[in-house]
Amino acid sequence: MDLAFTDADFPIKNEADIQTYASRVASTVGELCIWLVFHHGSVKLPEDKKSRLVQAAITMGYALQYVNIARDIQVDAEMGRVYLPTNWLGEEGLVPQDIINNPRQPKAEILRQKLLDLAFKEYQESRSTMNLLPNDIRGPLIVAVESYMEIGRVLREKSSVPSKTKRGRATVPRSRRLWVAWKNLSRS
């Protein structure tokens, strides 16, 4: 889908397209990681738990990719790409070129928040299933997910002010990243 971007064509037309994109670039990675856990793990899980964990990994992949897209609106615009669905842009009276020309405009922020709403919905659907993971891998995987979702939380907090960026990307302060890791490891 990345190769389909041209000056005249933006392949992310609607929510189904953004989910397809997220599936291809993130959900597949989540599913692969879960299958590696099953294969190399010391605990053998029943098939019903495996099935639930695979589906949760796929769903969490959507959530993490949506956060990634929400974080990178400016960076992507600089490359001539807009991953926000064009039908969402149309609802705001925009076309992709408007985001490319001004990725920090207020309407882009409205769409970022809409995408984050979708990300957190997917996250909520799959997060509790992570508790089914074997003890030896649960903590590190939860920390990885929570650390990435923290980017989304930062974007939500800073929705009305420019966020601290590193090369155009929102960042989570080191102390906050450590807090997220400690909090989630201590629960595992």
Score class of each variant (00 low, 15 high):
184 N>W: 14
82 V>M: 02
157 E>L: 15
173 P>W: 06
132 L>R: 03
66 Y>R: 02
98 D>Y: 04
60 M>E: 01
7 D>E: 15
21 Y>D: 01
22 A>S: 06
154 V>Y: 01
169 R>W: 12
63 A>K: 12
49 K>M: 13
180 V>M: 02
124 Q>A: 03
32 L>N: 08
2 D>P: 04
119 A>M: 00
74 Q>F: 11
112 R>E: 10
111 L>A: 02
82 V>F: 01
45 L>W: 00
80 G>W: 14
119 A>P: 00
133 L>F: 09
62 Y>L: 14
175 S>G: 05
66 Y>M: 04
174 R>T: 10
77 A>T: 08
136 D>L: 04
8 A>N: 13
70 A>P: 10
143 V>L: 15
36 L>S: 07
103 P>Q: 08
171 T>E: 14
149 M>G: 11
165 T>M: 01
172 V>M: 10
17 D>A: 12
161 V>N: 13
67 V>W: 11
162 P>H: 06
165 T>Y: 05
148 Y>I: 12
142 I>Q: 02
132 L>S: 11
151 I>H: 09
53 L>E: 02
65 Q>R: 10
186 S>E: 08
36 L>P: 02
58 I>F: 11
20 T>L: 03
156 R>D: 11
12 I>Y: 00
71 R>N: 01
140 P>S: 11
136 D>F: 03
73 I>A: 01
